[in-house]
């Protein structure tokens, strides 16, 4: 081990037996500098959680892909969806992702009211999204095309509904964070939580991109 350190010293691209000296990153948390800062630990932990959430969604996506043609004599994708609503939902969620980013910028500057205001805008846009989706679901159920109708509709309601549920939980979280920022200020751990929230919110938008493409656009076109 120590014998190879000497070589590694000279060659930064040396592969394999790297000792402390030759290691390419002095970043904390990579072993050299000891434990990383709390902010990085929290952010990274939440990042892994988001990845696990992606994997969970992938199970629902896979199921949707497998069940999408099994309509049991009921309607298929191209007969059901109202593209105007989908476009509106997409716009609302995308904009809310943007305002969520602005919120985190204001939080970095520790300005209370702008932060709260962007949180509120984010929340309202998120609420609009959930409302539109809920209206679409209610409409489908009312015309007899609820999730019990066919394998396809089961998979559709579950995949889209799971995303909608995530957004709803996000709204509950956002409301809680608004109260917390208001009452407790920009305490460090609260900032971490808001950071996690914004990661969560952006990640939901990524999932939505997959949903509107696979379920709605390709579904309606195909």
């Amino acid at each position: 081990m120590t014998a190879t350190d000497a070589h590694a010293d000279h060659d930064p691209h040396h592969i394999g037996h790297r000792g402390a000296a030759g290691y390419h990153s002095m970043a904390v948390g990579h072993g050299e500098g000891g434990p990383a800062s709390k902010r990085i630990i929290v952010g990274y932990g939440f990042w892994i959680f988001l990845l696990s959430d992606f994997v969970m969604f992938s199970a629902f996506f896979a199921t949707y892909a497998v069940l999408k043609d099994r309509t049991a004599g009921g309607p298929g994708a191209h007969q059901l969806f109202n593209m105007t609503d989908i476009a509106l939902e997409t716009g609302a969620l995308l904009l809310s992702s943007f305002t969520c980013g602005l919120m985190s910028l204001e939080m970095d500057r520790k300005r209370l009211w702008p932060t709260e205001a962007w949180m509120l805008v984010t929340g309202l846009l998120g609420f609009l999204f959930v409302f539109l989706e809920g209206r679409e679901f209610a409409h489908l159920v009312s015309i007899g095309d609820g999730p019990q109708r066919s394998g396809f509709l089961t998979a559709f309601f579950t995949l889209v509904g799971c995303h909608g549920m995530h957004v709803s939980i996000g709204l509950l979280w956002l409301g809680t964070m608004m109260a917390q920022v208001y009452f407790k200020g920009f305490r460090q751990d609260i900032q971490f939580r808001v950071l996690c929230f914004s990661l969560f919110w952006h990640a939901l938008d990524i999932i939505w991109v997959a949903i509107f493409t696979l379920v709605y656009l390709i579904g309606v076109h195909g």
């Binding site: 002095m26 970043a27 904390v28 929290v42 952010g43 990274y44 990042w47 910028l105 914004s198």
Partner: peptide, 10 residues
């Protein structure tokens, strides 16, 4: 200083 960054950090 180019240390580690958390996801979401600008």
């Amino acid at each position: 200083e180019g240390g580690d960054v958390a996801p979401g950090d600008v």
